[in-house]
Design a protein around this nucleic acid. Structure first.
Length: 392
DNA sequence: CGTGTTTGACCCGCGC
DNA sequence: GCGCGGGTCAAACACG
């Protein structure tokens, strides 16, 4: 690793063995130097030309420690679908800033080992490329959109392998939580072990005015640290659900203050956000829930109702058109396809379908989509997905 | 009163 | 060994 990169990593708070990936900005951002000296050459990301070939990216299933199954089979009734997240973020941006829209295009990438990356057509100024080094983020020169989110992840040895390993990681994590205040020798042992099998991490960049995105979970802030060479502090959050040791770090890019990087670590031990006060009603009928919540870190809400209420009462399909535009745009690029098995088992939704039927189920059964999206839009998306399959 | 935030102190790993 | 920086703790505080 070059001194320059080491310098950058150091300034970005990256340890040599940090599971969060470091991006080598060389090769116009197409070469990723992953942690542990793994390098993955990305396919040509001709995002500007909407000509991306991610065909091989989805060759293998991926797993990511993210609270939402971004690419979950839409046929399921799983509320934690990709679109759900879209809506969440949609809301977040819409309600928290002057932004009227944003895009969220995440493309799961996988190298030949165990690291998952999510790429998006996020607008990527030079500043972001630099920042991305901390979290293995996006490296491309995409056309910009008002608000964007890029997603990437890095995982430990277990995160991308199989369920058993993920469980092992989870167990260790929980053990760390419980035993955190044990004797120092034990703590040291734990730390050492933890180093070998760290929690899966999942980071994504978001262009937003607010630091702490409402991802549907309840978070408690437990720390804040100044980031070296950055005027913006890094905040540390922990999932407030009892027994759930998931953490996330939120920091703002010093180069581009409009960019927020959120890094998730660990697996949620609960199927969906739980709150002591019990707001589960939102989960079953988000659209009906018009609860007024804040944009604070502790807010726990399903966004679209607020979005609808606060954003000029846009009709449902208008909003979802926006969401779907993201998909469509990606799909038309041949970049956003339902990777099927690329769910996020890292978050341990044992009861959730693990995208059992790659590519097909989402096409035939749209789950939430079919209830909300205009059929024409669905068909467009589907056609694109089919075309992508044909390419394979 | 319950919940979440703030913030200084502390611990730990790492590089020199 | 020492200093630095990241990460965490926990008491104090704020808020509804």
């Amino acid at each position: 690793m070059t001194d320059d990169l080491s310098e950058k990593k150091q300034t970005q708070g990256i340890k040599a063995d940090d599971e969060i990936l470091a991006i080598d900005a060389a090769e116009e951002g197409r070469a990723l130097t992953l942690g542990r000296d793994r390098t993955m050459l990305l396919h040509k990301l001709e995002l500007a030309g909407n000509n991306i070939n991610f065909s091989s990216i989805f060759d293998a299933p991926i797993s990511l420690p993210f609270p939402y199954s971004y690419f979950e089979d839409h046929s399921s009734s799983n509320p934690n679908s990709f679109l759900d997240l879209l809506r969440q973020d949609h809301h977040q941006f819409a309600s928290s800033s002057n932004s009227s829209s944003f895009s969220f295009d995440a493309f799961p990438l996988q190298n030949n080992n165990d690291t998952n990356l999510f790429f998006t057509d996020l607008p990527l100024p030079q500043a972001m490329t630099t920042k991305a080094e901390e979290s293995s983020e996006v490296v491309n020169t995409a056309p910009t959109s008002p608000n964007s989110t890029s997603v990437s992840s890095s995982s430990n040895e277990a995160a991308n392998d199989n369920t058993n390993k993920e469980v092992a990681v989870k167990d260790q994590e929980e053990g760390d939580q419980k035993e955190h205040k044990d004797t120092k020798p034990q703590l040291k042992v734990k730390k050492k072990n933890q180093k070998k099998a760290r929690e899966a991490r999942f980071a994504f960049l978001t262009k937003s005015d607010i630091d702490n995105l409402d991802d549907g979970y309840r978070w408690r802030k437990y720390g804040q640290k100044a980031v070296k060479n950055s005027p913006y502090p890094r905040s540390y959050y922990r999932c407030t659900t009892v027994g759930c040791g998931v953490k996330k770090r939120v920091e703002r890019s010093s180069d581009d203050p409009s960019i927020v990087m959120t890094t998730y670590e660990g697996q949620h031990s609960h199927p969906f956000p739980m709150t002591p006060r019990g707001h589960l009603g939102m989960l079953t009928s988000p659209i009906l829930d018009h609860g007024a919540t804040t944009a604070s870190s502790s807010s726990f809400s399903i966004p679209q109702p607020r979005y609808l209420l606060t954003q000029h009462h846009q009709p449902y399909n208008s909003m979802y058109n926006t969401s779907l535009n993201m998909i469509n745009r990606s799909s038309s690029d041949g970049t956003f396809i339902n990777p099927g098995s690329s769910s996020f088992p890292g978050f341990g939704y044992d009861h959730m379908p693990q995208a059992s039927t790659p590519t097909t189920s989402a096409i035939r059964d749209h789950g939430l989509l079919q209830d909300i999206l205009p059929s024409q839009i669905r068909e467009d998306t589907i056609n694109t997905q089919i075309n992508e399959e044909d390419k394979k």
